Amino acid sequence: MTIRDVLSDADERTNVQDADASLMRAARLHKKFEPLTIDLVPRPSPRASDVLVQVKACGIVPNVVNVLNYSLESVVSLPPLPAIFGLDAAGVVAAKGELVHGVEVGDRVYVNPIRYCGSCRYCRMGQHAGCEYSTLNGYFGMGSKALQMFQDYPYGGYAEYMTAPQYSLVKLPENVSFETAARWGYLGTAYAALRRASVDMSSTVLINGVSGTLGVGGVLFALALGVPKILGVGRDIELLERVKAIDPHRIHVHSTNSRISVAEWVRSHTDGCGADVVLDALPTGAPAEAFLAALDALGKCGRHVNCSGVLECVPINVPKYTVSSQTLIGSCWFTTAQGQEMAELAASGRVNLDVFENRGYALEDINTALAEVNERKGGFSNFVVLPDERRSK
């Protein structure tokens, strides 16, 4: 049974009106394969080092349906039910604990969902993905002790309010709307991958899956980082042309439906050298063949950075990348510091985020949003839940 199959049943269960200021509305999953329901739950209070954020927008990422269906349960850990999901929340600080400094009530913020212990050797090195407690709040856990983080921070962004640690806050400039900030997770994933690959003004970057949710963000921040040539690979010709239109002089695109291989096309644009950097931004469930096609286009001494959703094992030609001095890099999520760098790039005008088409839904319409998320126009569509809004009568 899919979310769309049970949508009408969910509608009958979402006519909830809060009559008590100590309560809030939240979309909760009570059972696998069932729709989310709008429940009244206690409004949380921030602990000493936490803040309370009034959620203004929360993103609906394409992969969230897989998470809600628990189809990734063998790969990651998921919160105990009932659970409030919601990965990318942006809003206003409504209250703060007594140990929170440098953040004020009323500040506009994005809440980075990554949670970690802060004490282990990985956290001390700033490598939070290695922490045993590493968790994407409102989404899934990556570390073996993620359950503790779900217990400490049980509120995702599909609610009117959520608590968050001070270390998670990115302060937003006025020229970044809450709807756009609700895209920060996928934008940040691409940005962090580019930084890990050390792209700069001398890099030729191939983005695999360029017209998707990760790919478009990779284009925007590669341009902001001064990359002179971006080679984009995808399937849909219309979407590829939209990507090229962002900067026709620096962006070149290629459809995988072409008879010309990705590697052959890339070498035709790089004097036979291949790409300096390959950013793999394929969607969840993409085949290994698509991954390997881009890897084959990597030049000598190049860097391949993967933040894609390829789940199957990929055979690697070890002698080839050894002799060619190539580097293979895995990149998972981004730090709050990197999220703030992105905000500064937006504030200065170096990155243009106007390409996104925001599509907002009231909290009561979240099941409709989940059913429609696959109708997006590639990476240009930005689906968001707006908890402040009420369903129109």
Rank of each mutant, 00 (worst) to 15 (best):
F221L: 08
V103P: 00
F85V: 02
F150R: 02
A159P: 01
T284M: 14
Y139G: 04
H252T: 13
Q148N: 13
G349H: 01
R267F: 01
H30Y: 15
N358L: 13
R43L: 13
P283Q: 15
S211T: 15
E264W: 05
L282Y: 03
G106H: 08
D276P: 01
V111M: 08
T163D: 00
Y186V: 14
L40F: 04
V41Y: 04
H269W: 14
D9V: 12
S255D: 00
A182Y: 01
V6D: 14
G330S: 11
Q54Y: 07
G299K: 10
Y110H: 13
V210W: 06
N358T: 15
C273I: 11
L99G: 14
N358V: 15
G309D: 05
A222W: 05
V385D: 04
Q54V: 02
A164E: 00
A90P: 01
A281E: 02
L295D: 06
R47H: 13
E341M: 10
F140V: 04
S203M: 06
K377S: 13
A263K: 12
C273D: 11
F85Q: 02
G272C: 05
H101P: 01
G212D: 00
G130C: 00
H101E: 15
Y155V: 09
L87Y: 14
V76S: 03
M142A: 07
L292Y: 08
T270R: 09
E73V: 13
G218S: 08
C117W: 03
N317M: 12
K244V: 08
C123W: 03
R124P: 03
G330M: 08
T180G: 05
K31Q: 15
T2A: 15
E104T: 11
I237L: 15
A371F: 01
R124D: 13
D39N: 09
T322Q: 12
S392A: 15
L78D: 00
P113E: 01
V41G: 03
T336C: 03
A182P: 02
C120Y: 01
L298F: 11
V310N: 06
L239P: 00
S71W: 05
G86R: 08
S177D: 07
N137F: 00
P287K: 12
G339H: 07
E160A: 04
P287C: 07
V385A: 03
E357F: 10
D39A: 07
L298T: 02
P154T: 04
V76M: 07
G156N: 07
S8I: 12
V53H: 02
S22T: 14
P46D: 05
M342C: 13
R13V: 12
P154Q: 06
R267G: 01
C117Y: 03
R115T: 05
V76D: 00
R43F: 08
I366P: 00
V176Q: 09
Y70M: 15
A343R: 10
R43S: 03
F356T: 06
V373K: 10
S71D: 11
